[in-house]
């Protein structure tokens, strides 16, 4: 793997919001490296800092109150961190783009969907507006919407079709990196599968790298090559699908899997992770998960180090210092 195949190189990202009620530590030291054409799933509870991470990649964290610090943020070898606003606008939409959770609010009600797709093409590619419109129609057909509907307004589309339009906008300039922020959460289950298939196919076609933000482990298993489990602004476990799903190491990841309904035993009670996400203004010392962790002991209140299990798999859990420690979930 050569260096230029790395689409995203993010090191030690920290985001905090300095509000009057205290400092909210949203992301605390996050590293991420993504190869071209690969997909990584960012999994975690609400409030784990997934969306904030995505916005930080686009340098769109509102400032003030947001403060973004980072050792390295490179996109395709370009240093996004120290970029001027003018260059940033060229990168946004062209090299990196994002799909939102709720397609109902992500489209501008006063423009036709064709105009909205064409706008992004017109901004980033050297072409006339008529050509941009032409390509917008092609994009629409690519996502499975008849081209003549380009002249219709968002309110004339159903939720699933709107999400297709949003995908068309996001992919219009063939970005290197696509961030999908819970793209199927607002859709019903039958449409979810269609939208996911669409994303999978288009991604293959354009060799787009993907960061899939979700709390649905099923989607991750379907789409992603790698998984990063986030908790309270840090990645607690990261590895390939195989590593994380079949050789789970972190107690939090175990908790996530345990809280899924069991398809073989439909009457079984769900086993949620007890307790709540810690208050991000007042994170516990050491491992942020230790107040909820069934394996926790005194040592968990000390700062945690990253432990490499294999080349691709790492976990941030101090319990592995104890001889013979393993979590209850069986390796498969």
């Amino acid at each position: 793997m050569s260096e230029k195949d790395i689409v995203l190189d993010l090191q030690n990202l920290r985001v905090r919001f300095e509000t009057e009620d205290g400092i909210v530590y949203a992301v605390n030291g996050l590293d991420m490296k993504l190869e071209k054409g690969k997909a990584i799933g960012l999994v975690g509870e609400t409030g784990a800092g997934k969306t904030t991470t995505a916005l930080a990649l686009l340098r769109l964290v509102p400032d003030p109150p947001g403060v973004v610090e980072c050792d390295k943020l490179e996109l395709n070898g370009q240093d996004v961190l120290n970029m001027g606003i003018h260059d940033l606008e060229k990168v946004r939409g062209k090299d990196i783009s994002m799909i939102f959770q709720d397609p109902m609010t992500a489209l501008n009600p006063v423009f036709t969907v064709g105009e909205q797709i064409a706008e992004s093409i017109f901004l980033h590619e050297k072409c006339t507006y008529a050509e941009a419109q032409q390509r917008a129609v092609e994009m629409l057909e690519l996502v499975g919407i008849p081209g003549e509907r380009a002249n219709e307004y968002p309110h004339q589309f159903s939720g699933g079709m709107k999400q297709r339009v949003v995908i068309a906008i996001a992919l219009a300039c063939h970005p290197q990196l696509l961030i999908a922020d819970e793209p199927t959460t607002a859709l019903d289950v039958t449409i979810q599968a269609q939208v996911l298939d669409l994303m999978k196919n288009l991604r293959k076609q354009y060799q787009t790298s993907l960061i899939m933000i979700t709390h649905d482990l099923g989607i991750v298993a379907d789409i992603c090559d790698e998984v990063a489990v986030m908790y309270a602004g840090t990645i607690v476990e990261k590895g390939t699908l195989e590593d994380v799903f079949n050789h789970t190491k972190h107690p939090y990841t175990e908790g996530l899997f345990n809280s899924l309904p069991n398809i073989n035993d439909r009457k079984a009670m769900l086993t949620p992770i007890k307790g709540l996400m810690p208050d991000p203004t007042n994170l516990p010392e050491g491992c942020p998960f230790h107040p909820r962790c069934p394996y926790a002991d005194e040592d968990c209140k000390k700062p945690q180090v990253v432990r490499n299990i294999s080349d691709s798999h790492y976990v941030r859990c101090g319990a592995y210092d104890r001889p013979g420690f393993h979590i209850e979930r069986k390796e498969r």
Partner: peptide, 14 residues
Amino acid sequence: GEEYIEAARIAGVG
């Protein structure tokens, strides 16, 4: 504060 404004930002609109 609407999401489509943020979406426009992400599309690279100044």
